[in-house]
């Protein structure tokens, strides 16, 4: 048997010994993960107190949630969709999109006439920290589900992809915290609702360095 045929036989043996999921299996698994993560996020949202309009004008709440929801959808599509390529968008586009997510969320919030309501400024950072923690908790199941969808790895820019996944999940968390939190103080929105998006983008980049990055099997170095 020639060396080439031998290598091929070795690989085919390895492939037979390690069955991999087909496309149908993957689609089924992704649906289960997406549904599970969505249910868990919804459950956490209800446990945190659910939607609370409070003294806020309902139209303003709906407008804000709609705008942020739109940004979250775009961020999710950008992070997960690969189009007809297995390699996705160029890293520079993905990075620009990731940076744009929290900025667009901020622009969308400040473009609405929240400030004209004259809400009193929040005192202390405990309420900011509480909203920060709730936003991260609401986003966590989605981060997990998004990473499962990209678990085949990213050979080009794993950190950027991870950041995009984190930002997309964070954007959904921000939508939910915006529906829940009655505070309309700009500082609180920045620290409690938007900072988690940035934080999750960084966390996503860090996680991706180990979970999405492709590493070669270590060989003994030749003498």
């Amino acid at each position: 048997m020639s060396a080439g045929a031998d290598r091929k036989a070795q690989l085919l043996d390895a492939v037979r010994a390690e069955p991999s999921p087909t496309r149908a299996d993957v689609v089924r698994r992704e649906r289960v993960w997406s549904l599970g993560a969505s249910c868990l996020t919804a459950l956490l949202f209800v446990l945190a107190g659910g939607m609370r309009v409070g003294s806020r004008p309902p139209m303003l709440v709906a407008s804000s949630a709609g705008a942020w929801g739109g940004i979250a959808v775009v961020a999710t599509v950008m992070a997960l969709r690969r189009g007809r390529s297995m390699l996705g968008a160029p890293g520079s586009w993905l990075l620009a999109g990731t940076i744009a997510v929290p900025l667009l969320l901020a622009v969308a919030w400040f473009a609405l006439p929240w400030v004209s309501l004259g809400a009193p400024a929040t005192r202390g950072y405990s309420i900011d920290a509480a909203c920060f923690a709730v936003t991260v908790a609401l986003s966590a199941p989605l981060v997990l589900a998004f990473f499962v969808r990209r678990q085949d790895g990213d050979p080009l820019q794993p950190s950027v992809t991870g950041a995009a996944l984190g930002a997309a999940a964070g954007a959904w968390g921000a939508v939910l915290i915006d529906l829940h939190c009655e505070t309309v103080d700009p500082r609180h929105v920045v620290l409690g609702h938007l900072l988690p998006v940035v934080t999750l983008a960084f966390v996503g980049a860090l996680i991706a360095r180990s979970s999405l990055a492709i590493h070669a099997k270590r060989r003994d170095t030749e003498a």
């Binding site: 690989l11 492939v15 390690e18 991999s20 496309r23 149908a24 689609v27 297995m86 085949d152 790895g153």
Partner: peptide
């Protein structure tokens, strides 16, 4: 070999 093994593992995600 490593590349093709990775392709095998990720076959279900081939678009």
């Amino acid at each position: 070999q490593q590349t093709l093994l990775r392709i095998h593992r990720a076959r279900g995600r081939f678009t």
